[in-house]
């Protein structure tokens, strides 16, 4: 059966409108739930730097959000170590909402650097760890992570990595606990206070426990490991100015609350 052009056009228009309404309707209805899911996911990742994965898994979504609200405060700094509170149009900047991928495309001086402060249990004045966000490129696509530093702003208390499309079993192993645990206790600065970063080495299975800046690498995933090293170097340097300010103020604990 051959239909007229008018029929075809009418059919197409009606179909488009119906499907369009259906999709935008669903999107509207689900948007708040999706927003909550994204928020929960971000907070889970941030907490992943200071909590064991089994601890996070044992908590219900509401408990995670509560825990986050009680123990973590956040702020945003620039490369010179100044606090950023309002954007150009005067809206408050919220660290959890900073899109690190978007910032990555800007020059390092223009980026916003989110910073999360993990407070001691039952004592919101005292700081247990500082958590910073890192971001970069792996072999296939983006990789990112959160890195928790002890109050000396030098020793790594824990890291958590995420990736979009690294090879399963090779580069994707950066999400494994065994790999992330290798970073714990390493130092960013040498005894003279110079920035050294920490770097995964080529090859796997060697013992680097006596070297503060070297981490056992990933066999078969050197490019992913190099990506991790690069994002550490790029981002931790950018936080250095703020770290210095915190240290200079002496009582880094009190400044954390400002």
């Amino acid at each position: 059966m051959q239909q007229s052009n008018a029929y075809i056009i009418t059919f197409s228009v009606i179909l488009t409108v119906v499907l369009g309404l259906l999709l935008s309707g669903t999107s509207q209805v689900l948007a708040p739930i999706q927003k909550k899911a994204v928020e929960l996911d971000t907070k889970k990742q941030i907490l992943g730097a200071v909590l064991a994965p089994s601890e996070i898994r044992s908590m219900k979504p509401d408990e995670i959000l509560d825990f986050y609200d009680n123990r973590i405060t956040s702020k945003v700094v620039d490369i010179e170590g100044n606090l950023l509170e309002k954007d150009e149009s005067g809206n408050p900047i919220i660290a959890e909402n900073v899109n690190v991928a978007k910032n990555y495309k800007m020059a390092p001086e223009k980026r916003m650097y989110p910073m999360f402060v993990f407070h001691k249990e039952g004592n919101p004045e005292a700081v247990e760890a500082y958590i910073v966000q890192v971001y970069g490129a792996g072999l296939w696509d983006e990789i990112w992570g959160f890195l928790a530093l002890d109050t000396d702003l030098n020793t790594i208390a824990g890291v958590t990595f995420g990736h979009k499309a690294e090879t399963p079993g090779l580069g994707a192993r950066i999400t494994e606990n065994a790999v992330q645990d290798r970073f714990r206790g390493k130092r960013l600065f040498d005894d003279g206070g110079n920035f050294q970063s920490v770097a995964m080495q080529k090859g796997e299975g060697r013992d680097y426990s006596d070297d503060d800046h070297k981490v056992d690498g990933l066999s078969g995933a050197t490019i992913t490991a190099n990506g991790v090293n690069a994002m550490f170097r790029n981002y931790l340097q950018a936080y250095k100015a703020y770290f210095d300010k915190l240290r200079d103020s002496g009582a880094s604990e009190s400044l954390a609350l400002n």
């Binding site: 059919f11 197409s12 499907l19 259906l22 999709l23 689900l30 999706q34 899911a37």
Partner: peptide, 27 residues
């Protein structure tokens, strides 16, 4: 209309897949 049936099929499939994707993202 038989002349645009492939596009119609594609539109229906694409809408359903987008629905699935949105639901997964939420839940």
């Amino acid at each position: 209309p038989s002349r645009v049936r492939i596009i119609v099929q594609l539109a229906v499939i694409a809408s359903l897949v987008t629905l699935v994707n949105e639901v997964l993202k939420a839940f």
